[in-house]
Design a protein around this nucleic acid. Structure first.
Lengths: 124, 124
DNA sequence: CTCCACAATCTACATCTGTAAATCATGGCG
DNA sequence: CGCCATGATTTACAGATGTAGATTGTGGAG
């Protein structure tokens, strides 16, 4: 189930807070993304149709909630990138960030911490 | 300049080896991607038009070469992902991989090595 | 010189996306 | 009770994308 760029902005809003009405979503998204109400309603409709969002009837309006976890979405997207571009290897991808100076001292520190936790950690 | 999924497969083939003729590309890509010759020629044409590939005339056939660096492409794609989904922070993205068991001992080792090299390394 | 095989280019077309206007339905106000 | 505001749904439509058939142009075989 593919979530498009525009749709993902709606999902993010729903992950941040839910359930919410379309009106509520519109209040947040319309100005920020310069979208019309109709656009947001269309996106919501498409997301419901593809099973990514649930519309629970509350009177004649609905309350919308995400049906997929943000973490699953992150996982799938990341996975896809690393598979497509880095032969499924995480290290080369991080190396790529490093090469492009996207890793600052702060990041390196955070990563080292993360890695040491992983070592004496949960895994296996 | 946006390179689509289908186009990126042609780019990958060109990054692997270039310059090459369309025939050569077709030999490699048509079976693997189950594409017709025409499809590959269309993709090549679009890539040339958008300046991602150069077609250097050699008689009446061309020799095709990539005009953009694979490393730049990787960089842009990775950047876009981490910006869109992880607030521009690399560490959380790696953590996400970790959480999903995509980091095996091997990866962790590679990453630690990478990080220590970075520390006493080149940077600044 | 002429004709053709083949590369290149053009055209085609269904689907997907982004964006939004038009229409439908109904719960609540008067 | 009937009408309407408002949320939902349908329809619209241009541009992007995946995929490929139709057309063109020309270097080289004969």
């Amino acid at each position: 189930m593919k979530i498009t760029d525009a749709e993902s902005l709606v999902m993010e809003a729903l992950w941040k807070k839910h359930p919410r009405t379309s009106e509520d979503l519109i209040l947040e998204l319309a100005p920020r993304e310069t979208w019309s109400e109709a656009t947001i309603r269309t996106l919501l409709g498409r997301l419901v149709k593809k099973g990514a969002v649930e519309a629970k009837g509350e009177g004649r309006r609905y309350l919308y909630s995400p049906l997929i976890e943000r973490s699953d979405y992150l996982h799938a997207e990341s996975e896809s990138l690393v598979d497509r571009l880095f032969g499924g290897e995480v290290a080369p991808m991080v190396a790529n960030f490093a090469k492009n100076r996207r890793l600052k001292a702060k990041d390196i520190k955070a990563l080292k911490k993360l890695l040491s936790e992983l070592e004496d950690g949960d895994d296996k």
